[in-house]
Write a protein that binds this DNA or RNA. Structure first.
Length: 171
DNA sequence: ATCGTCATATGAA
DNA sequence: TTCATATGACGAT
Protein backbone atom coordinates (compact mmCIF):
# COMPACT_ATOMS: atom_id res chain seq x y z
CA UNK A 1 0.00 0.00 0.00
CA UNK A 2 2.60 2.41 0.95
CA UNK A 3 6.33 2.68 0.72
CA UNK A 4 7.55 0.15 -1.72
CA UNK A 5 10.98 1.34 -2.54
CA UNK A 6 13.38 -1.45 -3.43
CA UNK A 7 16.68 -0.03 -2.40
CA UNK A 8 19.44 -1.26 -4.60
CA UNK A 9 21.41 -4.14 -3.18
CA UNK A 10 25.09 -3.36 -3.12
CA UNK A 11 26.38 -6.65 -1.89
CA UNK A 12 25.41 -10.13 -0.77
CA UNK A 13 27.94 -11.55 1.61
CA UNK A 14 28.11 -14.95 3.30
CA UNK A 15 28.18 -15.47 7.03
CA UNK A 16 29.75 -18.73 8.07
CA UNK A 17 28.32 -20.22 11.23
CA UNK A 18 28.17 -23.60 12.84
CA UNK A 19 24.58 -23.81 11.70
CA UNK A 20 25.38 -23.09 8.07
CA UNK A 21 26.07 -20.20 5.78
CA UNK A 22 23.72 -17.26 6.04
CA UNK A 23 23.68 -14.63 3.33
CA UNK A 24 23.40 -10.97 4.18
CA UNK A 25 22.18 -8.49 1.57
CA UNK A 26 23.19 -4.87 1.92
CA UNK A 27 21.70 -1.81 0.30
CA UNK A 28 22.91 1.74 0.42
CA UNK A 29 21.16 2.20 3.76
CA UNK A 30 22.28 -0.87 5.61
CA UNK A 31 21.36 -4.49 6.05
CA UNK A 32 18.32 -5.12 3.86
CA UNK A 33 17.82 -8.87 4.14
CA UNK A 34 19.20 -11.97 5.73
CA UNK A 35 18.79 -15.45 4.25
CA UNK A 36 18.89 -18.72 6.10
CA UNK A 37 21.42 -21.30 4.97
CA UNK A 38 20.35 -23.17 1.86
CA UNK A 39 20.39 -26.88 2.12
CA UNK A 40 21.34 -27.26 -1.52
CA UNK A 41 24.53 -25.40 -0.78
CA UNK A 42 24.26 -23.09 -3.78
CA UNK A 43 25.33 -19.72 -2.48
CA UNK A 44 24.67 -16.69 -4.58
CA UNK A 45 26.87 -14.61 -2.34
CA UNK A 46 29.80 -12.85 -3.82
CA UNK A 47 33.17 -13.81 -2.48
CA UNK A 48 34.98 -10.55 -3.08
CA UNK A 49 34.51 -7.88 -0.50
CA UNK A 50 32.77 -4.70 -1.60
CA UNK A 51 34.92 -1.63 -1.92
CA UNK A 52 32.80 0.43 0.38
CA UNK A 53 34.39 0.29 3.80
CA UNK A 54 30.98 1.05 5.23
CA UNK A 55 29.54 -2.19 3.98
CA UNK A 56 32.45 -4.17 5.31
CA UNK A 57 31.87 -2.63 8.70
CA UNK A 58 28.18 -3.47 8.54
CA UNK A 59 28.99 -7.02 7.63
CA UNK A 60 31.33 -7.34 10.57
CA UNK A 61 28.54 -6.21 12.87
CA UNK A 62 26.01 -8.46 11.21
CA UNK A 63 28.28 -11.46 11.49
CA UNK A 64 28.83 -10.90 15.18
CA UNK A 65 25.14 -10.30 15.78
CA UNK A 66 24.04 -13.44 13.96
CA UNK A 67 26.47 -15.59 15.88
CA UNK A 68 25.37 -14.03 19.13
CA UNK A 69 21.74 -14.85 18.45
CA UNK A 70 22.59 -18.39 17.44
CA UNK A 71 24.24 -18.75 20.82
CA UNK A 72 21.23 -17.34 22.59
CA UNK A 73 22.88 -14.03 23.44
CA UNK A 74 21.91 -10.45 22.80
CA UNK A 75 23.94 -8.80 20.04
CA UNK A 76 26.14 -6.06 21.41
CA UNK A 77 25.60 -3.91 18.35
CA UNK A 78 23.50 -4.11 15.22
CA UNK A 79 24.26 -2.73 11.77
CA UNK A 80 21.79 -0.19 10.39
CA UNK A 81 18.73 -2.06 9.20
CA UNK A 82 17.25 -1.08 5.86
CA UNK A 83 13.56 -1.71 6.22
CA UNK A 84 12.58 0.86 3.63
CA UNK A 85 10.69 -1.65 1.55
CA UNK A 86 8.33 -2.53 4.37
CA UNK A 87 5.06 -0.73 4.89
CA UNK A 88 4.71 1.63 7.81
CA UNK A 89 2.77 -0.94 9.73
CA UNK A 90 5.38 -3.61 9.13
CA UNK A 91 8.19 -1.32 10.15
CA UNK A 92 6.39 -0.50 13.35
CA UNK A 93 5.94 -4.16 14.14
CA UNK A 94 9.56 -4.97 13.34
CA UNK A 95 10.73 -2.17 15.56
CA UNK A 96 8.57 -3.52 18.32
CA UNK A 97 10.13 -6.94 17.95
CA UNK A 98 13.53 -5.38 18.50
CA UNK A 99 12.54 -4.48 22.05
CA UNK A 100 11.80 -8.04 23.07
CA UNK A 101 14.61 -9.02 25.43
CA UNK A 102 16.56 -12.16 24.78
CA UNK A 103 14.98 -15.10 26.53
CA UNK A 104 11.50 -13.60 26.60
CA UNK A 105 8.57 -14.08 24.29
CA UNK A 106 5.47 -12.22 23.26
CA UNK A 107 2.30 -13.35 21.61
CA UNK A 108 1.00 -11.92 18.36
CA UNK A 109 -1.80 -10.41 20.37
CA UNK A 110 0.63 -8.72 22.76
CA UNK A 111 2.51 -7.16 19.89
CA UNK A 112 -0.75 -5.96 18.41
CA UNK A 113 -1.67 -4.31 21.71
CA UNK A 114 1.70 -2.63 22.05
CA UNK A 115 1.15 -0.82 18.77
CA UNK A 116 -2.33 0.22 19.87
CA UNK A 117 -4.04 -2.05 17.39
CA UNK A 118 -5.24 -4.91 19.56
CA UNK A 119 -7.34 -6.34 16.77
CA UNK A 120 -4.57 -6.50 14.23
CA UNK A 121 -3.30 -9.82 15.50
CA UNK A 122 -3.29 -11.55 12.16
CA UNK A 123 -1.70 -8.55 10.57
CA UNK A 124 1.10 -8.87 13.10
CA UNK A 125 1.59 -12.43 11.98
CA UNK A 126 1.73 -11.21 8.42
CA UNK A 127 4.32 -8.59 9.30
CA UNK A 128 6.44 -11.20 11.01
CA UNK A 129 6.14 -13.37 7.97
CA UNK A 130 7.47 -10.64 5.75
CA UNK A 131 10.31 -9.78 8.08
CA UNK A 132 13.34 -9.60 5.79
CA UNK A 133 15.86 -9.91 8.59
CA UNK A 134 15.20 -12.90 10.82
CA UNK A 135 17.39 -13.40 13.88
CA UNK A 136 18.33 -9.75 14.18
CA UNK A 137 14.65 -8.86 14.15
CA UNK A 138 13.67 -11.61 16.57
CA UNK A 139 10.45 -12.80 15.01
CA UNK A 140 11.20 -16.21 16.50
CA UNK A 141 10.37 -14.81 19.95
CA UNK A 142 6.78 -14.27 18.90
CA UNK A 143 4.52 -17.15 19.78
CA UNK A 144 0.80 -17.65 19.50
CA UNK A 145 -1.37 -17.31 22.56
CA UNK A 146 -1.09 -20.03 25.18
CA UNK A 147 2.59 -20.48 24.27
CA UNK A 148 1.84 -22.34 21.12
CA UNK A 149 4.69 -22.37 18.64
CA UNK A 150 2.90 -20.59 15.83
CA UNK A 151 4.69 -20.54 12.52
CA UNK A 152 7.93 -19.42 10.98
CA UNK A 153 8.75 -18.44 7.45
CA UNK A 154 12.23 -19.87 7.44
CA UNK A 155 11.01 -23.20 8.76
CA UNK A 156 9.62 -24.22 12.09
CA UNK A 157 12.72 -26.19 12.92
CA UNK A 158 14.68 -22.95 12.91
CA UNK A 159 12.22 -21.33 15.23
CA UNK A 160 12.50 -24.17 17.70
CA UNK A 161 16.26 -24.11 17.44
CA UNK A 162 16.48 -20.39 18.12
CA UNK A 163 14.07 -20.63 21.02
CA UNK A 164 16.04 -23.52 22.46
CA UNK A 165 19.21 -21.45 22.24
CA UNK A 166 17.56 -18.89 24.49
CA UNK A 167 16.29 -21.61 26.78
CA UNK A 168 12.71 -20.72 26.04
CA UNK A 169 10.42 -23.63 26.68
CA UNK A 170 7.07 -24.07 25.05
CA UNK A 171 4.20 -24.91 27.32
C1' DA B 1 -8.31 -31.71 24.71
C1' DT B 2 -9.16 -30.97 19.79
C1' DC B 3 -11.73 -29.07 15.95
C1' DG B 4 -14.58 -25.92 13.28
C1' DT B 5 -16.09 -21.30 12.56
C1' DC B 6 -16.14 -16.51 12.70
C1' DA B 7 -14.27 -11.72 13.43
C1' DT B 8 -10.87 -8.42 12.22
C1' DA B 9 -6.46 -5.89 10.24
C1' DT B 10 -3.25 -5.80 6.71
C1' DG B 11 -1.01 -6.87 2.28
C1' DA B 12 -0.70 -8.72 -2.40
C1' DA B 13 -2.63 -9.56 -6.97
C1' DT C 1 -12.16 -6.05 -4.88
C1' DT C 2 -11.10 -10.69 -3.57
C1' DC C 3 -8.09 -13.91 -1.40
C1' DA C 4 -4.66 -15.43 2.01
C1' DT C 5 -2.57 -15.07 6.85
C1' DA C 6 3.11 -17.27 11.42
C1' DT C 7 -4.20 -15.18 15.47
C1' DG C 8 -7.67 -15.33 18.92
C1' DA C 9 -12.08 -16.22 21.06
C1' DC C 10 -15.85 -19.24 21.43
C1' DG C 11 -18.82 -23.08 21.09
C1' DA C 12 -19.51 -27.94 19.91
C1' DT C 13 -17.86 -32.33 20.23
Amino acid sequence: MKAKRPSEVLASLPIETAAGTFIAHYSTSGLAALDFPRSSGRESAQTSLPKAAEVRHWHALTTKAVKAVLNGNTPAELPPLDVSRGTEFQQRIWEELLWIPCGETRSYGEIAKSVRKPKAVRAVGGACGSNPIPLLIPCHRVLAANNKIGGFGGGLDWKRKLLAAERITLL
